[in-house]
Amino acid sequence: MWLPLLALIIGILFGFLTDFQISDEYSSYLSIAVLAALDTLVGGIRAHLEKTFDDKVFITGFFTNIFLAASLAFLGVHLGVDLYLAAVFAFGVRLFHNIAIIRRIFLVKWTKKSDSTTKD
């Protein structure tokens, strides 16, 4: 449980300490990639809680989502259509949906636990 959180902090520290710079025009791609990554992560957590987690699906989903989101943004820039909004919308909706399901799973667990403690 603590390993991913620790890894997140290490990642952030690493990002700040290496002073890695990207130019302005690529920052929109990176932001959409971040969103895709978060979406995959939350989806993975949900699958883990629902006990349907599959390593391969998770890993491939993570990279293809990032790649597709960035390429969609790229295509949008070259077509002159804000296609990245489509990605933002899709990922945003799915992110919230997954978070809601995760919340419900935790809620069910918590109520079961408290029920059992009150019965005892």
Partner: peptide
């Protein structure tokens, strides 16, 4: 344990991307 390692790898990447993006913005 394997699963947690995968999650850790993914979160490292996410953390790195967030930090870089934050610096850029």
């Amino acid at each position: 344990n394997n699963r947690m390692t995968i999650f850790a790898c993914v979160t490292i990447i996410i953390g790195f991307m967030v930090a870089v993006q934050f610096q850029a913005v």
